[in-house]
Amino acid sequence: MTGLERALRMRRDRGEVGLVPYLTAGFPDEPTSLALMQACVARGCEVIEVGVPFSDPVADGPVIQRAGQRALEQGMTLRRALHLVREVVAAGGRPVIMTYLNPVLRLGFAEFATAARAAGCAGVIVPDLSHEESGDLRRALAGEGLPLVDLVAPTTTPERLGRIAGPAAGFLYLVAVAGVTGTRSATFADLAALAARVREHTDVPLNIGFGIDGPDRAREAARVADGVIVGSALLRRLLEAPTTATGVEATLALIDELLAALMDPARRTHS
């Protein structure tokens, strides 16, 4: 079992639900993105998703697209993101890299796995890498003791679910809505049904993402999952703020609201 999975299982055993922030590396600029990640760790977020920007992010909605475009304009790359990963580890967090496949392919799977391991990366998520095509990268990462985190979606058939969830490592990423990031909210019924279907196949920790737009949705997701991933809602605060400083303030305020929602004892009241 990887360190990531062990940590998430321990958190679950303590009855806690983790908040997993997704932040785009290099947005609004490199030092600010790192400072935000460090501030999240200081507030008690253990896993941080370090988003590597890509020119054609087909799984992402307008907010993460815009954040990524700004980060690319300022020269963010997969290699630079690994530098942020190292700093997040130094701050005590467990950074998970979220990247589209092509930058990894360009670097080379073996070289990427070695560099990710050396930086202290805890796991890797590649939203455009289907389970069917994932063998080579999964093996390269496993060789360095790193999990490739799989995603399952509301459209995933029972047969696929068994194939994907059975051997899952690290955690499973539950895509809450059929859609791209940050564009619509999942209903509680959708979340509960998806989580229940997945639990039939695996007991690895489940983190829910896509469409978690604030404390109310986070509270609902926490009733059925072990962790809640929030990305677009955080980045939207940065995008809409008049200055970087007010953007950081607004983003951290949302982090605090989300953490408070997840600590709410009422959330464990199962319907």
Partner: peptide, 12 residues
């Protein structure tokens, strides 16, 4: 070739 798409599309 191959199929490099988000999981949501794989069943489709």
């Amino acid at each position: 070739g191959g199929q490099y798409v988000p999981e949501t599309l794989m069943p489709a």
